[in-house]
């Protein structure tokens, strides 16, 4: 099998705030025989909801990253749903709108770059879930008995309505969890926005959105929420105290990256997956897998 190589765009959040996502990604990519080459000198893609305030600027920022990946001859992979959505959308616009591409390329000249629309943009979870057989084969330490609420969030799917992608009934997150031996629960709000973009600008709304998600995850019998986005992770995990203070609730729902769960199932020691930096400790079934991984 030829080794798959991608240009890897970690995004600002992964630099530190979501380092565990980065660490676990690197670990499982190695096991899966996938090479992730970090894009040299990448810049922020401007994913927050407000950057679209100047769309041409947003396209320019994304295009610089796309151009650098194209120069390497590689497709781009982003682990952050926000970054992914932005660069995916930018890519589609540039391929379709020649005037736009021409103008953006005019700006890129300043950095001796040019983008010709030759690459694709993938979300990290896509590239792993494309090869479920391989995932299953590598999951020698299956997460038996772990009930996972797979949280897609919003930007990972929407708004790609016209690309014959199933944006309303996706299954790949569930299938991936099944492949590593965990049990995906029926998580009704799995596609519902968590409100991360509003945490500063409309705190009330954001906290209530987080509360709804936590409650729904508990109702569905989950031990843990799995995410594929640093913004979702931080929003769902780190704000539980505030939610509890605001609504008089007592939530304490662990939230991990799908890559951390995959890593555990592959027998990688917890520490190397950044497990231990979370606010809320892992549930029993995960701890058992951690012990087994450490013993290997």
């Amino acid at each position: 099998m030829t080794k798959k190589t991608f240009a890897y765009f970690p995004g600002c959040s992964l630099e530190k705030m979501a380092e565990s996502y980065h660490l676990s990604t690197v670990e499982i990519a190695r096991v899966m025989g996938m090479e992730l080459k970090e894009l040299e000198d990448w810049n922020c893609c401007g994913a927050t909801a407000y950057f679209h305030v100047d769309e041409l600027l947003a396209h320019t920022l994304c295009a610089r990253n796309l151009a650098m990946a194209e120069k390497e001859g590689l497709d781009l992979v982003a682990p952050c749903s926000g970054c992914y959505k932005n660069m995916h959308a930018c890519n589609a616009h540039l391929k379709k709108d020649h005037d736009l591409a021409d103008h953006i390329n005019f700006a890129l000249e300043e950095d001796n770059l040019r983008y010709d629309g030759k690459i694709k943009v993938h979300h990290l979870i896509e590239v792993f879930s494309e090869d479920l057989k391989e995932v299953k084969a590598k999951a020698t330490n299956p997460l038996t008995g772990l009930k996972v609420a797979p949280y897609y969030g919003c930007q990972i799917l929407r708004p790609r309505k016209f690309e014959h992608e199933n944006v309303e009934e996706p299954r790949y997150f569930e299938d991936l969890m099944t492949a590593i031996g965990a049990t995906p629960v029926d998580f009704l709000l799995r596609l519902r926005c968590c409100g991360a973009a509003l945490i500063i600008t409309n705190r009330q709304a954001a906290l209530s959105m987080v509360r709804n998600l936590l409650q729904n995850a508990l109702d569905s019998g989950a031990d843990v929420i799995a995410t594929a986005c640093p913004l979702c992770q931080v929003n769902l995990e780190c704000y539980q105290d505030q939610v509890n203070a605001e609504f008089g609730t007592k939530y304490s729902v662990p939230v991990f990256y799908f890559t951390q769960l995959m890593g555990l199932s592959m027998g990688i020691p917890a520490k190397r997956l950044g497990i231990g930096t979370e606010f809320l400790s892992p549930p029993a079934a995960m701890l058992a897998a951690c012990r087994k991984a450490a013993a290997v």
């Binding site: 600027l57 320019t60 890129l108 300043e110 930096t277």
Partner: peptide
């Protein structure tokens, strides 16, 4: 938890970047 960076990260070709903008 070691999850906040201490110094802001900068890109290397910042001057080009600014002219691009």
């Amino acid at each position: 938890k070691g999850r906040l960076p201490v110094l802001p990260a900068r890109i290397k070709r910042l001057e080009n970047f600014k002219r691009m903008i």
